Computed example of a mutant assay.
Amino acid sequence: MKLGDISVSYVEILRKAMLALDSNPQLTLQQFGLTDVTMASPDARISIPRFMRLGFASIQFSQKPWLGLEMGLQTSATNLGIAGLMALSAPDLSTACKSICHYELLSSYNARGQSAFYISDGYGVAQFYSISPYNSFNLFVADSVLSGWYHLAKWLTGRDDCIEAMCFEFDEPEYSAAYREYFDCDVRFSQPYNAVIIKPEALSYPVVHGCASTYELLKRQADADLEKVRMGLNFSEKVARVITPLLNGSTPTLDRVAEQLNMAPWTVRRKLVDEGVTFQQVLNNTRRDLAISYVKDTAFTLGEIAYLLGFGSPTAFQRAFKRWTGIAPGSYLQKD
């Protein structure tokens, strides 16, 4: 299992942000093999680890650690693909937010989870999944997504009074003063989750360019595309996708996975047997594939990887990794 990939439209956002910060992105993009032809392809994707390395390289080149915040400012509805176009034609802000989160999978897949929009105590919550532990390679990702949602909400409605607060899961970074320049609302760090909190009254604000017929047309196409993505997965792959975000700090049980799939545990077990595998095999294979990706493609420590995969200690993880690959994690990295 790979960590995920995203549309190259997100690279376009990064390119625009670099230019806005008076940094030429061309050399960095060339180093990562991102040509104009690739950037113009509707089917081109970039792996999440590669995108994180691109962002890190861009921050080093520009010397602007708040690059992600600027990426949010430069995000337009069209950068989000059909989900963004749906938001642009939605009747109100609540529907726009639901569209962006629900159809996120059409332009972005992350094994760690999926964004969600829901109502809590009357407030709208646009929540971006956790990508902890945070480091220099992924802080900009959370910055860019939440900043993008914030500025899109203002642009879609033509109003500045939509957002109650911006919540960030990570501790206050060294460049925290920049957040006050990008957000005209309460900014909170060390929160339980990453989220944009929308005021209750703002949920019904009309979208300036809303069009009911266009929205329904786009929704019809988006639903069909989403079904194709999901139908392309066999059942064990669907189970693996459910297992992955549940791994953080614990080992997910069959009962918990079945609940996420809205199925009885025995049904999940039977469907897996029909494909010639058991739940434990899917769990072990998911852990193995993610372990290899984390070791090869990220800067996480062994302790962090152990936690992300639900192991009780780094030692337990190292034993499992050696059992899976025949060599220790450090040796595996040197091998490649």
Rank of each mutant, 00 (worst) to 15 (best):
F168L: 14
L54I: 01
Q221V: 14
W66P: 09
D274A: 15
K238Q: 15
S99F: 07
N248K: 10
E164W: 12
K64A: 13
P314F: 00
V125F: 05
L203Y: 00
N79F: 15
D297F: 06
K228S: 15
A111Y: 11
L88W: 12
E237P: 12
A258Y: 11
V8F: 08
A316N: 09
K228N: 13
K2C: 12
S108P: 04
R319V: 14
K296D: 01
S250Q: 15
M39S: 04
V207C: 14
A153M: 05
M18P: 10
T298I: 08
E227C: 12
G330E: 10
R220T: 15
L152M: 06
I292V: 04
G326N: 06
M71S: 03
A57P: 06
A291C: 03
R256F: 01
I82N: 11
C162V: 01
S293L: 08
A96G: 09
D274F: 00
K16F: 03
Q260K: 06
L19T: 10
A212K: 15
L156A: 14
L27I: 04
G276A: 01
M39K: 15
L80P: 01
Y118V: 03
Y294S: 02
P329Q: 08
M39N: 11
R319M: 05
C167E: 10
P245G: 09
S213V: 02
H102R: 07
L146S: 07
L302Y: 04
F51N: 12
S7T: 10
F117D: 04
I305V: 02
S62V: 14
S236C: 13
S293D: 13
L247S: 05
I198M: 04
D36K: 02
D184L: 11
C162M: 00
T75G: 02
L233V: 07
A291W: 01
T244V: 04
P133E: 09
L27Q: 15
Y103C: 01
Y129G: 10
E70H: 12
S108V: 01
Q127W: 02
T244R: 15
